[in-house]
């Protein structure tokens, strides 16, 4: 079943076409890799899906419903959550409070809602930060700040998780551990789209790859085939030689 479908998506900034008539689908239960060189429009696609940007044209459907013009918080409440490239925890709140915020009901009458401490600890435990719950986000090492972002997204109980460069800045061990955790998310029934400009870390994780180049779909298919695809290699050669290996 197709959980998310992006149809003829176009986004222009003034005269600049950042995403050009892009279509792809995400099947329920899969992990899709969305790759492309820097500036190819990957993050813009996420921003369009999440209604951070208004699309210039095209449709985004989630679970059969047209969500193109929904507001961000409505999309989140439908079961779609995004982990952005930048970490932006609220510095004046603890890790626990940062996660708890993501469990509050969208109601102005809820004075004491939100998940229990136990539930919050379990979100944190899924990314190994359960020991940091009482810490300030500012005191955490980089990798833990990234993990906090993922825990926050998990706390919205998503069906589909959009992960923007989740491996950036992590070392080999951390990348491996995070990939395992993504696998366990999948076992819990979460579908994922992972954006990366680098295919190396993605190869073993993803089931299928969509390659973006200049805002257009360049190729899609099995990761092994994509690596061998000449057009993909050419696109990357223009920018980064070592990215595809």
């Amino acid at each position: 079943m197709t959980l998310l479908s992006v149809e003829d998506l176009t986004k222009q900034f003034g005269g600049l076409v950042a995403v050009d008539d892009l279509s792809f689908g995400v099947e329920s239960g899969e992990i899709l890799g969305l790759i492309g060189p820097n500036g190819s429009g990957k993050t813009t696609v996420f921003n369009c899906i999440m209604s951070i940007y208004q699309v210039t044209g095209g449709t985004v459907r989630f679970d059969g419903t047209d969500i193109t013009d929904d507001k961000t918080h409505e999309i989140v409440n439908r079961g779609l959550s995004r982990v952005s490239q930048e970490s932006n925890p609220i510095g004046s709140m603890t890790v626990r409070e940062n996660i708890e915020l993501f469990t509050f009901p969208n109601s102005i009458r809820s004075f004491d809602g939100g998940a229990s401490d136990k539930a919050i600890a379990s979100y944190a435990a899924q990314v190994d930060i359960e020991d940091a719950l009482n810490d300030d986000p500012g005191s955490l090492p980089h990798a833990d700040v990234r993990r906090l972002e993922i825990a926050k997204a998990l706390a919205t109980e998503p069906d589909l998780l959009l992960l923007d460069e989740p491996f950036a800045g992590l070392n080999q061990t951390e990348v491996r551990r995070l990939s395992e955790q993504f696998e366990s998310f999948r076992e819990q029934g979460i579908t994922m789209v992972v954006v990366d400009h680098n295919m190396r870390g993605l190869m073993d994780l993803v089931d299928r790859v969509v390659v973006l180049h200049n805002g257009q779909k360049l190729a899609s298919g099995d990761p092994a085939d994509i690596v061998g695809d000449e057009r993909v290699q050419d696109a990357y050669l223009a920018g980064e030689v070592s990215a595809v290996q």
Partner: peptide
Amino acid sequence: TVLIAIRENEDAVSAAGLD
């Protein structure tokens, strides 16, 4: 808490599914 979160980071509030 939500009101303070709006001051500190309104995007995070949207991303938390709160309007």
